[in-house]
Simulated assay, not measured.
Amino acid sequence: MLLENRNAVIYGGGGAIGGAVARVFAREGARVFIAGRTRAKLDAVAHDVAAGGGKIETAQVDVFDQEAVEKHADAVAASAGSIDIALNAVSVPHDQGTLLADLSVEEFMRPIDGFLRALFITSKAVARHMGRERPGVILTLSEPGSKLAVGGILGHAASAAGKEAFARVLAAELAPSNIRVVGIRPHAVVDAPAAGSYTGELFKPIAAAAGQSVEQLLHGGGMAQGTLLKRLPTLAEVAETAAFLASDRAAAMTGTIANLSAGALVD
Protein backbone atom coordinates (compact mmCIF):
# COMPACT_ATOMS: atom_id res chain seq x y z
CA MET A 1 0.00 0.00 0.00
CA LEU A 2 1.25 3.46 -0.92
CA LEU A 3 0.65 5.15 2.44
CA GLU A 4 1.01 2.37 4.98
CA ASN A 5 1.81 3.63 8.50
CA ARG A 6 1.35 7.29 7.47
CA ASN A 7 -0.76 9.76 9.39
CA ALA A 8 -2.76 12.13 7.19
CA VAL A 9 -4.79 15.20 8.11
CA ILE A 10 -7.38 16.49 5.65
CA TYR A 11 -9.04 19.84 6.25
CA GLY A 12 -12.39 20.07 4.50
CA GLY A 13 -12.50 16.30 4.80
CA GLY A 14 -16.27 16.20 4.57
CA GLY A 15 -16.36 17.89 1.17
CA ALA A 16 -16.32 16.32 -2.27
CA ILE A 17 -12.56 16.42 -2.88
CA GLY A 18 -11.54 16.05 0.76
CA GLY A 19 -13.82 13.06 1.22
CA ALA A 20 -12.63 11.37 -1.97
CA VAL A 21 -9.00 11.82 -0.92
CA ALA A 22 -9.73 10.52 2.59
CA ARG A 23 -11.24 7.33 1.16
CA VAL A 24 -8.23 6.69 -1.09
CA PHE A 25 -5.68 7.55 1.60
CA ALA A 26 -7.35 5.10 3.98
CA ARG A 27 -7.49 2.43 1.29
CA GLU A 28 -3.75 2.89 0.79
CA GLY A 29 -3.05 2.27 4.48
CA ALA A 30 -2.96 5.74 6.02
CA ARG A 31 -4.50 6.60 9.36
CA VAL A 32 -6.73 9.50 8.36
CA PHE A 33 -7.88 12.47 10.42
CA ILE A 34 -10.55 14.59 8.76
CA ALA A 35 -11.58 18.01 10.02
CA GLY A 36 -14.34 20.34 8.95
CA ARG A 37 -17.32 22.39 10.07
CA THR A 38 -20.19 20.04 9.28
CA ARG A 39 -20.49 16.95 11.47
CA ALA A 40 -22.91 15.12 9.18
CA LYS A 41 -20.57 15.35 6.19
CA LEU A 42 -17.58 14.22 8.23
CA ASP A 43 -19.55 11.29 9.63
CA ALA A 44 -20.62 10.20 6.13
CA VAL A 45 -17.00 10.02 4.98
CA ALA A 46 -15.95 8.26 8.18
CA HIS A 47 -18.71 5.68 7.71
CA ASP A 48 -17.48 4.87 4.21
CA VAL A 49 -13.86 4.57 5.32
CA ALA A 50 -14.70 2.42 8.35
CA ALA A 51 -16.91 0.16 6.21
CA GLY A 52 -13.89 -0.48 4.02
CA GLY A 53 -11.72 -1.36 7.00
CA GLY A 54 -9.84 1.94 7.07
CA LYS A 55 -8.68 3.95 10.07
CA ILE A 56 -10.29 7.37 10.42
CA GLU A 57 -11.08 9.97 13.06
CA THR A 58 -13.17 13.12 12.72
CA ALA A 59 -13.16 16.54 14.35
CA GLN A 60 -15.30 19.64 13.97
CA VAL A 61 -12.83 22.46 13.35
CA ASP A 62 -13.26 25.92 11.87
CA VAL A 63 -10.28 26.26 9.57
CA PHE A 64 -10.29 30.04 10.01
CA ASP A 65 -9.83 29.69 13.77
CA GLN A 66 -6.05 29.49 14.06
CA GLU A 67 -6.05 28.47 17.71
CA ALA A 68 -8.55 25.67 17.09
CA VAL A 69 -6.58 24.37 14.08
CA GLU A 70 -3.34 24.36 16.05
CA LYS A 71 -4.94 22.56 19.01
CA HIS A 72 -6.35 19.94 16.64
CA ALA A 73 -2.97 19.42 14.94
CA ASP A 74 -1.29 19.12 18.34
CA ALA A 75 -3.86 16.52 19.40
CA VAL A 76 -3.41 14.50 16.21
CA ALA A 77 0.37 14.50 16.57
CA ALA A 78 0.12 13.50 20.25
CA SER A 79 -2.25 10.65 19.40
CA ALA A 80 -0.58 9.37 16.23
CA GLY A 81 3.02 10.29 17.00
CA SER A 82 3.45 12.48 13.92
CA ILE A 83 1.69 14.14 11.02
CA ASP A 84 3.09 12.84 7.75
CA ILE A 85 0.64 14.20 5.18
CA ALA A 86 -1.68 17.21 5.13
CA LEU A 87 -4.18 18.45 2.56
CA ASN A 88 -6.25 21.62 2.74
CA ALA A 89 -9.40 20.88 0.70
CA VAL A 90 -11.51 23.66 2.21
CA SER A 91 -13.82 25.39 -0.27
CA VAL A 92 -14.61 29.10 -0.11
CA PRO A 93 -17.80 30.24 -1.91
CA HIS A 94 -16.98 33.01 -4.35
CA ASP A 95 -18.20 34.79 -7.45
CA GLN A 96 -17.38 33.70 -10.98
CA GLY A 97 -18.77 35.52 -13.97
CA THR A 98 -18.92 39.13 -12.73
CA LEU A 99 -16.72 41.61 -14.62
CA LEU A 100 -14.67 44.38 -13.01
CA ALA A 101 -17.28 47.11 -13.53
CA ASP A 102 -19.82 45.23 -11.42
CA LEU A 103 -17.47 43.45 -9.01
CA SER A 104 -17.26 44.76 -5.44
CA VAL A 105 -13.96 44.83 -3.61
CA GLU A 106 -15.48 42.55 -0.96
CA GLU A 107 -16.39 39.90 -3.54
CA PHE A 108 -13.00 40.27 -5.21
CA MET A 109 -11.19 39.73 -1.92
CA ARG A 110 -13.40 36.88 -0.65
CA PRO A 111 -11.52 33.99 -2.36
CA ILE A 112 -8.12 35.65 -1.96
CA ASP A 113 -8.50 36.12 1.77
CA GLY A 114 -10.43 32.91 2.37
CA PHE A 115 -8.32 30.41 0.45
CA LEU A 116 -4.95 31.89 1.40
CA ARG A 117 -5.86 32.43 5.05
CA ALA A 118 -6.97 28.80 5.34
CA LEU A 119 -3.84 27.56 3.58
CA PHE A 120 -1.56 29.62 5.82
CA ILE A 121 -3.26 28.56 9.05
CA THR A 122 -3.35 24.85 8.25
CA SER A 123 0.18 24.70 6.83
CA LYS A 124 1.63 26.45 9.86
CA ALA A 125 -0.22 24.13 12.23
CA VAL A 126 0.92 20.86 10.65
CA ALA A 127 4.48 21.80 9.65
CA ARG A 128 5.56 21.85 13.31
CA HIS A 129 4.76 18.13 13.52
CA MET A 130 6.32 17.04 10.22
CA GLY A 131 9.61 16.09 8.71
CA ARG A 132 13.04 15.42 10.14
CA GLU A 133 13.39 11.61 10.39
CA ARG A 134 9.87 11.05 8.94
CA PRO A 135 9.36 12.72 5.54
CA GLY A 136 6.42 15.12 5.48
CA VAL A 137 4.18 16.16 2.60
CA ILE A 138 1.87 19.16 2.36
CA LEU A 139 -0.54 19.05 -0.59
CA THR A 140 -2.37 22.12 -1.87
CA LEU A 141 -5.21 22.61 -4.33
CA SER A 142 -5.51 25.33 -6.97
CA GLU A 143 -7.31 25.82 -10.30
CA PRO A 144 -6.49 26.61 -13.96
CA GLY A 145 -7.69 30.16 -13.26
CA SER A 146 -4.15 30.80 -12.04
CA LYS A 147 -3.06 30.92 -15.69
CA LEU A 148 -6.20 31.42 -17.78
CA ALA A 149 -6.91 34.79 -19.42
CA VAL A 150 -10.69 34.67 -19.05
CA GLY A 151 -12.97 37.50 -18.02
CA GLY A 152 -15.11 37.38 -14.89
CA ILE A 153 -12.75 35.44 -12.61
CA LEU A 154 -10.54 38.18 -11.14
CA GLY A 155 -10.75 37.10 -7.50
CA HIS A 156 -10.75 33.42 -8.34
CA ALA A 157 -7.68 33.75 -10.59
CA ALA A 158 -5.75 35.85 -8.09
CA SER A 159 -6.45 33.37 -5.29
CA ALA A 160 -5.44 30.40 -7.46
CA ALA A 161 -2.18 32.07 -8.47
CA GLY A 162 -1.57 32.98 -4.84
CA LYS A 163 -2.01 29.38 -3.71
CA GLU A 164 0.48 28.16 -6.29
CA ALA A 165 3.03 30.83 -5.33
CA PHE A 166 2.50 29.94 -1.67
CA ALA A 167 3.21 26.27 -2.38
CA ARG A 168 6.42 27.00 -4.29
CA VAL A 169 7.85 29.32 -1.64
CA LEU A 170 6.78 27.07 1.22
CA ALA A 171 8.53 24.16 -0.50
CA ALA A 172 11.79 26.15 -0.39
CA GLU A 173 11.31 26.99 3.28
CA LEU A 174 10.46 23.47 4.42
CA ALA A 175 12.82 21.41 2.26
CA PRO A 176 15.63 21.55 4.89
CA SER A 177 13.18 19.97 7.35
CA ASN A 178 12.49 17.04 5.00
CA ILE A 179 9.02 18.29 4.06
CA ARG A 180 7.77 18.36 0.48
CA VAL A 181 5.09 20.73 -0.78
CA VAL A 182 3.24 19.82 -3.98
CA GLY A 183 0.26 21.56 -5.54
CA ILE A 184 -2.56 19.87 -7.43
CA ARG A 185 -4.32 21.88 -10.14
CA PRO A 186 -7.49 20.17 -11.35
CA HIS A 187 -10.01 21.81 -13.65
CA ALA A 188 -13.71 21.83 -12.66
CA VAL A 189 -13.91 18.46 -10.92
CA VAL A 190 -16.88 16.35 -11.87
CA ASP A 191 -18.53 13.21 -10.65
CA ALA A 192 -22.00 11.87 -11.25
CA PRO A 193 -24.17 13.75 -10.64
CA ALA A 194 -22.14 16.92 -11.20
CA ALA A 195 -25.02 19.14 -10.10
CA GLY A 196 -24.77 17.71 -6.60
CA SER A 197 -21.13 18.65 -6.11
CA TYR A 198 -19.37 21.84 -5.12
CA THR A 199 -18.54 22.27 -8.79
CA GLY A 200 -22.23 22.13 -9.60
CA GLU A 201 -23.11 24.73 -6.98
CA LEU A 202 -20.31 27.04 -8.11
CA PHE A 203 -21.30 27.00 -11.77
CA LYS A 204 -25.08 26.98 -11.32
CA PRO A 205 -25.41 30.81 -11.63
CA ILE A 206 -23.16 30.91 -14.72
CA ALA A 207 -25.12 28.09 -16.35
CA ALA A 208 -28.43 29.80 -15.56
CA ALA A 209 -27.23 33.09 -17.06
CA ALA A 210 -26.33 31.22 -20.25
CA GLY A 211 -29.67 29.42 -20.32
CA GLN A 212 -28.00 26.05 -19.68
CA SER A 213 -28.01 23.34 -17.07
CA VAL A 214 -24.81 22.70 -15.15
CA GLU A 215 -24.34 19.47 -17.10
CA GLN A 216 -24.61 21.37 -20.39
CA LEU A 217 -22.12 24.00 -19.24
CA LEU A 218 -19.59 21.45 -18.06
CA HIS A 219 -19.98 18.76 -20.69
CA GLY A 220 -22.25 19.62 -23.59
CA GLY A 221 -19.93 21.66 -25.74
CA GLY A 222 -18.90 23.77 -22.77
CA MET A 223 -15.92 23.59 -20.45
CA ALA A 224 -15.01 20.02 -21.33
CA GLN A 225 -14.60 20.93 -24.98
CA GLY A 226 -11.96 23.49 -24.03
CA THR A 227 -9.63 20.73 -22.86
CA LEU A 228 -7.37 18.54 -24.99
CA LEU A 229 -9.04 15.40 -23.66
CA LYS A 230 -12.54 16.82 -24.24
CA ARG A 231 -13.53 15.95 -20.69
CA LEU A 232 -13.05 17.16 -17.14
CA PRO A 233 -11.14 15.43 -14.33
CA THR A 234 -13.08 13.26 -11.91
CA LEU A 235 -12.95 13.11 -8.13
CA ALA A 236 -11.38 9.67 -8.36
CA GLU A 237 -8.57 10.95 -10.57
CA VAL A 238 -7.80 13.82 -8.19
CA ALA A 239 -7.82 11.50 -5.17
CA GLU A 240 -5.60 8.86 -6.79
CA THR A 241 -3.12 11.56 -7.84
CA ALA A 242 -3.05 12.93 -4.30
CA ALA A 243 -2.20 9.49 -2.93
CA PHE A 244 0.65 9.10 -5.40
CA LEU A 245 2.05 12.56 -4.65
CA ALA A 246 1.90 11.88 -0.91
CA SER A 247 3.77 8.60 -1.29
CA ASP A 248 7.47 7.77 -1.50
CA ARG A 249 7.01 7.12 -5.22
CA ALA A 250 6.90 10.90 -5.65
CA ALA A 251 9.74 11.55 -3.20
CA ALA A 252 11.67 13.70 -5.70
CA MET A 253 8.73 16.05 -6.31
CA THR A 254 8.46 19.33 -4.44
CA GLY A 255 7.89 22.98 -5.27
CA THR A 256 5.81 22.07 -8.31
CA ILE A 257 2.20 21.88 -9.46
CA ALA A 258 0.61 18.70 -10.80
CA ASN A 259 -1.55 19.70 -13.77
CA LEU A 260 -4.85 17.80 -13.72
CA SER A 261 -6.68 20.17 -16.06
CA ALA A 262 -7.21 17.49 -18.76
CA GLY A 263 -5.29 19.75 -21.10
CA ALA A 264 -7.14 23.02 -20.42
CA LEU A 265 -3.63 24.24 -19.64
CA VAL A 266 -0.51 22.84 -21.24
CA ASP A 267 2.59 23.54 -19.14
Rank of each mutant, 00 (worst) to 15 (best):
A35C: 12
F25T: 02
A51E: 13
G162Q: 07
L87M: 06
H156Y: 15
L218W: 12
R6T: 11
L139C: 06
D84V: 04
P205R: 05
F108D: 12
A125M: 11
A209N: 12
L139H: 11
R231F: 08
F244C: 08
N7Q: 12
I83N: 02
Y198E: 11
A75E: 13
K147I: 05
I56L: 07
D65P: 05
A264E: 15
M109V: 01
D191Y: 00
G211N: 07
G136M: 08
I112L: 14
M109D: 06
G222D: 13
G155I: 07
L42V: 02
H47M: 03
E106Q: 11
L141C: 10
G255S: 14
L245Y: 01
E164V: 13
Y198F: 09
K204H: 15
D84I: 06
Y11Q: 00
A89F: 01
A78T: 05
V214A: 08
E70N: 09
S91P: 02
I206Y: 15
L116G: 03
V266P: 01
G14W: 02
E107C: 07
A209Q: 13
L229E: 08
A161I: 08
S104E: 07
L174K: 06
F33N: 00
A224T: 01
H156L: 15
M1H: 15
K124R: 14
A236K: 13
G196I: 11
A125L: 07
A171C: 10
E4G: 08
T256S: 13
V137C: 15
Q216F: 15
G12N: 05
A171R: 03
S213P: 06
N259H: 12
A127V: 03
D43T: 14
L170M: 04
D65R: 14
R134Y: 01
V189S: 00
A167V: 04
E28W: 03
A30L: 05
G221D: 10
P93R: 13
D62A: 14
T122H: 03
E57N: 12
N178T: 07
A149F: 04
L245R: 05
F120N: 06
A242Y: 00
A86T: 00
A167E: 11
G145N: 06
L139I: 13
D43I: 03
L100G: 09
G19E: 00
S247A: 13
G54K: 03
G131C: 05
I34F: 03
V63P: 01
A171W: 07
G155W: 09
A80S: 11
S146Q: 12
A207C: 14
A44G: 02
D65N: 14
A77L: 11
Q212M: 15
G255R: 07
Y11W: 03
F115W: 04
V24R: 11
V21I: 10
V69Q: 04
Q66R: 14
Q66D: 10
I112T: 03
R39D: 12
V49M: 10
D48H: 04
